[in-house]
Write a protein that binds this DNA or RNA. Structure first.
Length: 282
DNA sequence: ATTAGGG
DNA sequence: CCCTAAT
């Protein structure tokens, strides 16, 4: 639905032009690495810059019907870094300082997860990345080498694959589809759902019911809980929105709470009775 | 390791 | 964007 291809923002184009003015055309790597523009271009590779510049240059003709008129492109700029004016130091975009949160998330799904990568098989490499990360479920994430090794064992890849892989990873991180901690990449949220927001799945946090005696009630509850859990698990494995199962799980959870409270009361009454006290149950 | 050009 | 040849 969105843009499988990374749409270039006006800020990025501006940074690119400023970079060319500063370093000259052809110094794509310098422009990309320049701390002055890296904030805006860190998700682009030097090759991306080159391609973008070519695309901007070729569109001298009437811009696309539905294309906003961009600033004119200063075409032929031979090797003359010379003087360059930086319009203004690029503002820090919202997602430019990736928090290094090491969120202990759940290791979701198994190999079957690749069936719901993106609906429309995104750039074949993205699929490979997801496949790799979801198979080697490393809580800390996997570094580039590990990912490359995994993919090489399952697919034929070009020689410069590592480089491409790196680009892909960087982009996915920029898209917040992956999380990068230190030098490792890990799957982020359920990238599976499109328009619908993430369905918060109930984690296994059912109140542990400690039932000293009279366990028949507990068994019943546990059975229900297990049944619900199974339903959830099954639904998840099938990649379905387990709305019903979730509701039932919540219901059971509430049930367990009430039961526990009830048992506490019963226990108290039992204690009193055992001391010869007369207890009126209203 | 980077860049230029074609697909 | 991806791939390949040439620096």
């Amino acid at each position: 639905m969105g843009n499988p291809k990374q749409k270039w923002t006006a800020e990025e184009e501006e940074a690119l032009r400023a970079g060319i003015a500063k370093h000259g055309t052809g110094k794509w790597k310098n422009i990309q690495k320049d701390p002055e523009f890296n904030h805006l271009l860190y998700s682009r590779s030097n090759i991306d810059l080159k391609d973008k510049w070519r695309n901007m240059s070729v569109s001298a003709n009437g811009q696309g019907p539905r294309e906003k008129s961009r600033t004119p492109k200063p075409k032929s700029v031979t090797d003359s870094p010379a003087a360059a004016q930086f319009p203004a130091t690029p503002q820090l975009p919202p997602g430019s300082s990736p928090p290094v949160v090491v969120d202990s998330d759940v290791q979701h799904m198994d190999d079957a997860s690749k069936c719901l990568l993106d609906g429309k098989t995104a750039s074949k490499y993205n699929a490979m990345i997801y496949e790799a990360l979801s198979t080697l479920k490393d809580p800390n994430g996997s570094n580039t080498s590990e990912i490359v090794c995994f993919i090489e064992k399952r697919h034929e890849v070009p020689q410069n694959f590592r480089r491409l892989l790196t680009s892909r990873l960087r982009r996915l991180v920029a898209q917040e589809k992956l999380e990068k901690v230190q030098n490792c990449y890990r799957l982020r949220r359920e990238v599976l759902n499109g328009t619908k927001g993430p369905i918060t799945k109930p984690k296994e946090v059912w109140p542990r019911l400690s039932i000293p005696f009279n366990s028949h009630l507990g068994e019943t509850l546990e059975e229900a809980a297990v049944a619900a859990a199974y339903k959830v698990a099954e639904a998840e494995n099938k990649s379905f929105v387990a709305a019903e199962a979730v509701k039932e799980a919540e219901r059971v959870s509430k049930m367990a709470e009430e039961a526990e409270a009830f048992l506490q009361l019963a226990k108290e009454i039992y204690e009193r009775c055992s001391h010869g006290e007369v207890v009126m149950v209203t």
